[in-house]
Design a protein around this nucleic acid. Structure first.
Length: 456
RNA sequence: GUGGCUGUAGCUCAGCCGGUUAGAGCAUCAGAUUGUGGAUCUGGGGGUCGUGGGUUCAAGUCCCAUCAGCCACCCCA
């Protein structure tokens, strides 16, 4: 007895119609990446475990998929393997048991690549990367163990021009996809650091930012509870409350931030960056909002941070995000290189577009036209006509068997083919073809030459 | 990783307090109509009830385990 086949938790097969839709998203994103002068990069699915560990925080480390070393059953290795496995049971790593892992995101592999190749790269290096990543998270809707990221980063330049370009890129991509109601939230790590500096508890930056990050989902009650747990005094908690309550136009928000943190160098530096970012965009209307309550978790961001929010009518978290990181390659021994990037989560974008029915109908089209099958002699004719039409760049299908036209029509309809060509005994005698538009139902008679030159 | 809900035909689901041969709609296939589709009518096929154990005279139904999906936490795309 065979057990029914299945695939691992959090992974998916993509059937033809889904691949077509996903390709639509990939192609749109890639097109704009190229328009903004990014170059492609691909890195292996596997990285050394050392390359990944410690880069995503303690929680992140737990979510890295590790790969068991081969050959541990070798007689000479078994004893050591048992001893080393004890370390694993204690939650430690053992390179004897596992020394490779599946990549967790595309940013650390980029940093690794840049660190390895910085002498031959021309900076600023603008690269895009569209590849799958893996996380040992527990799956839910919009949350997979294997999913794709589409990243664009600029490495080796501190100009705030890039942040503005990324915001525009993001707008072009979402407009191109037809996802109108997205929004882009922006904040600055130094503004958050300035808040902590003002309150005199800079060492609690991470705790405070992760608490703030829960505001939208869990509400202020939860945030204040977290802050208390982190050891903030009531007065400090109230400062945080004022901070995250700030709303308004960019100018208004900046003014309030300055009033709240008048003596913070950190905050002032962050605000300068934000001002220069918005000044690039001053004559362009895109949905960018300065939101002090935005606090992305990843530790490596040091400057501006972005988050792409799904349209409010769908229940989906972030569709992507990014930010500026100083010294990312410093983790790999190459210092002084700053970068800024943005990442699109295409699996979630897919789910949102599906929910809002935003995919064009034409995506399911399997062929432009189909020749119906009225017999072997007829098919010898359509076979060569199909070849000529294909040579001219038309996607053509031929129905394989002589069955009732009724059935052939239904096949064409199912496969979303717009044009059907009927050639039978009569037509062959006169060298003509019946061409029917299945969407309008209009039928016309054409000579073979006319058919070959028809623009479908 | 922790806690909870769910799993019956290709899809959406019904199936009572455990009781004969597990049902419906849609989809599919065939015919009415042997060269013109989407409608209608008639008929057919399709299930070891996620998987593996257990309790029972008897399990889709109760119990345990496991796998998967979803939800909350955690974290994030």
């Amino acid at each position: 007895m065979t057990t029914p086949p299945s695939i691992p938790q959090g992974t998916r097969d993509f059937g033809p119609d889904i691949v077509c839709k996903r390709n639509f998203i990939f192609q749109t994103i890639k097109r704009f990446f190229e328009l903004y002068a990014f170059q492609p990069l691909e890195t292996p699915a596997l990285e050394h475990l050392d390359t990944l560990m410690g880069k995503y925080g303690d929680e992140g480390d737990k979510l890295i998929f590790k790969i068991l070393n081969n050959g541990l059953d070798h007689p000479e290795k078994q004893q050591k393997a048992r001893e080393e496995f004890e370390k694993i049971l204690q939650g430690k790593n053992s390179s004897f048991i596992t020394e490779r892992a599946l990549k967790y995101d595309l940013t650390i592999p980029l940093a690794r690549y840049v660190a390895m190749n910085h002498q031959r790269i021309t900076f600023p290096f603008k690269r895009f990367q569209i590849q799958p990543v893996w996380r040992a998270d527990r799956p839910q809707k919009g949350r997979y163990r294997e999913f794709w990221q589409c990243d664009a980063d600029i490495v080796g330049s501190r100009s705030s021009l890039h942040e503005a370009e990324l915001a525009l890129l993001c707008h072009d991509v979402f407009t191109g996809l037809g996802l109108k109601n997205y929004s882009l939230r922006v904040n600055h790590r130094k503004i958050l650091a300035g808040l902590c500096e003002t309150m005199g508890c800079s060492e609690k930056l991470t705790q405070i930012t992760t608490a703030i990050d829960k505001l939208e989902k869990a509400g202020w009650e939860k945030v204040s509870a977290e802050l208390q747990k982190a050891g903030l005094l009531p007065q400090q908690t109230d400062t945080v409350r004022q901070f995250i309550s700030i709303t308004g136009t960019t100018e208004e928000v900046i003014k309030q931030l300055q009033d709240l943190m008048p003596h913070s160098y950190e905050a002032a530096a962050g605000i300068e960056d934000i001002k220069s970012f918005f000044s690039w965009l001053k004559n362009i209307t895109i949905p960018v909002v300065l939101d002090p309550s935005l606090a992305r978790g990843l530790d490596y961001y040091t400057g501006i941070i972005f988050e792409i929010k799904a349209p409010p009518e769908v229940k989906m978290g972030s569709l992507g995000g990014g930010g500026r990181y100083d010294n990312l390659t410093g983790l790999f021994g190459v210092t002084g290189i700053s970068g800024v990037g943005i990442s699109f989560g295409i699996d979630r974008i897919f789910d949102v577009m599906e929910e809002l029915s935003l995919f064009p109908d034409s995506l399911n089209e399997t062929a432009k036209l189909i020749f119906f099958n009225l017999g072997i002699t007829e098919t010898e004719v359509t076979f060569s006509l199909a070849r000529e039409l294909r040579n001219k760049g038309n996607s053509v299908d031929i129905y394989p068997d002589k069955v009732k036209l009724d059935k052939q029509f239904r096949y064409a309809e199912k496969k979303n083919i717009q044009w059907a060509v009927i050639i039978g005994e009569e037509e062959i005698k006169t060298h003509t073809a019946k061409l029917k538009n299945l969407k309008t139902g209009v039928q016309q008679t054409l000579t073979f030459t006319e058919l070959l030159n028809f623009s479908f």
